[in-house]
Design a protein around this nucleic acid. Sequence first.
DNA 1: TTGCAAAGCGGAACAGCGCTCCGTATTGTT
DNA 2: AACAATACGGAGCGCTGTTCCGCTTTGCAA
Lengths: 195, 195
Amino acid sequence: MNDSGQDAGSSAGSRRKDARRNQQTLLDAAAAVFVTSGVEAPVRDIAAKAGVGMGTIYRHFPTRADLVIAVYRHQVDACAEAGPALLTTSPTPHAALGRWVDLFVDFLVTKHGLAAALQSDSAGFETLHAYFLDRLLPVCTQLLDAAAASGEIRSDLDAYQLMRGIGNLCIGAESDSRYDARRLVALLIAGLRHP
Amino acid sequence: MNDSGQDAGSSAGSRRKDARRNQQTLLDAAAAVFVTSGVEAPVRDIAAKAGVGMGTIYRHFPTRADLVIAVYRHQVDACAEAGPALLTTSPTPHAALGRWVDLFVDFLVTKHGLAAALQSDSAGFETLHAYFLDRLLPVCTQLLDAAAASGEIRSDLDAYQLMRGIGNLCIGAESDSRYDARRLVALLIAGLRHP
DNA sequence: TTGCAAAGCGGAACAGCGCTCCGTATTGTT
DNA sequence: AACAATACGGAGCGCTGTTCCGCTTTGCAA
């Protein structure tokens, strides 16, 4: 359960051949369905798209969150790893924070319903929330601390609140052309500057 | 459908006696259930709490959104009416905006799941979104314009985006003690000031 | 090659949801 | 007291997520 997604057999090829093949098929099908119908698409749709039964999906990914995590793991990891890099390549820590936040927002906004799922209180999605936090909170903390140390921003907002705020601002951004989450997040970051 | 909530018979006592009594019973039951189980509580729970059948609830309130609107109508109206008043009693338009936003945030944060329902893309909740917008967008626009005219804030963010941003920031605030929506909204408003 | 656990698969089945529909009961008017 | 008109209750439909178990596939061992 707290194996942070995927199956017990990890990604190495230890299981039976058909099992490995189905796992990959499911990941591809899920990715495709998430794009067209959003992250909260019916599990049956994913199973159908993969040409697989319901049982198979739940054996490979015990909970929906595990499937979502598996699909987006690479991109979340990339986002996490970009943090320290940005800190060295940006003119100031505050600029690095801004760029990293842009990266995160772009990721969330382009994944239908992901931001909403992250904050959803429906059972089964806490794992998703936890994974994002585990992976990104340390990076965000590092960037925030650096920017605070350089004196550019106030230091009375912790990384958790910032990330939740950003995640919240991204909810519904993909389905409402009148709403520009990037702009609002930028405003929020602007509000962090010392008065 | 676009009668903005409630029933055709409005609140006047034109219908049968038992119908009027049941409508009030339902409003009370819904208010009570919303407090304990949130706005997205099962309709059956509300019917049970009111000691009434499913049919009754849907005849009085054709959609869930209508019921939610009916329960909170007074408070939303109060919030809308407070806007112009604040404009005259506050030292500056920007201060009025800040106080009004606080009012709105306090309202959202104390109603379990209301902020989430507002942005929910589940069918049947667009009416709720529309009602809040109809009622509050003009007020927010007025406050925003006044603050922009006084030169205190930038004028390139419309009231719609601001309200959506605020609503989004309030999601989940009532069930996460580490997250303070009021603070983040304040930061967002701070970000509106001219640089 | 063949036999046979072990591992994996499919989808029927269950529970919980919103919402509809219609036979029955209540009202108030004649 | 009789009778429309109105309103009520809850069974039932379609949709979710999730579980469970009889059947199939796989791969090792003989």
